[in-house]
């Protein structure tokens, strides 16, 4: 631990603060993932892990390596840029998949209650992802959860 003791105090203080903050934010995000009740609330929990938690720890890593190696180490920016560009795509796709699957479940249930099996096949054959998605996911969602809320 001699390399650590050689650091100036301001760099060590900044890096420690950012590390503690990043660790806490990461933990809080996953607590939200575990604790919240519905899926649509849970998807907001990891968002703070991905943005603020990752950001804090990347900046701490930059400060640490720049000071200990006494040259500019900024290649953590690549991870930050990559994560900031890909995390929105991931959350949007998961949200769409969840909406699509919820609609699919409710439609299969309604199709099963129809006595005519041919109609059930038509209902299922009509379930193209693009077509069903152009529908009205908001009302489908609200209709499903309104008895509870």
């Amino acid at each position: 631990m001699t390399a650590l003791d050689a650091m100036p105090w301001w760099a060590a203080l900044t890096a420690s603060f950012l590390l503690v903050l990043g660790g806490l934010i990461t933990l809080i995000g996953t607590v939200g993932l575990l604790r919240l009740k519905t899926f649509y609330q849970r998807i907001h929990g990891p968002a703070i892990t991905i943005t603020l938690g990752t950001g804090c720890i990347l900046i701490a890593s930059m400060v640490y390596f720049t000071v200990t190696q006494s040259r500019l180490v900024i290649h953590e920016i690549l991870i930050a840029a990559f994560v900031l560009m890909t995390a929105p795509v991931v959350s949007m796709l998961i949200m769409r998949a969840a909406l699509y699957r919820n609609q699919y479940d409710s439609r299969v249930v309604s199709a099963r209650s129809v006595p005519n099996p041919e109609q059930e096949l038509v209902e299922r054959g009509a379930l193209q992802p693009e077509r069903s998605f152009a529908g009205d996911p908001v009302n489908a969602h609200e209709g499903r959860t309104s008895p509870r809320s």
Partner: peptide, 17 residues
């Protein structure tokens, strides 16, 4: 969509064309 999705608390779901 990137800015809205990166901000915690909001998720862009779809654009109704």
């Amino acid at each position: 969509s990137c800015l809205i999705n990166t901000t915690p608390g909001t998720v862009w779901v779809d654009l109704l064309p």
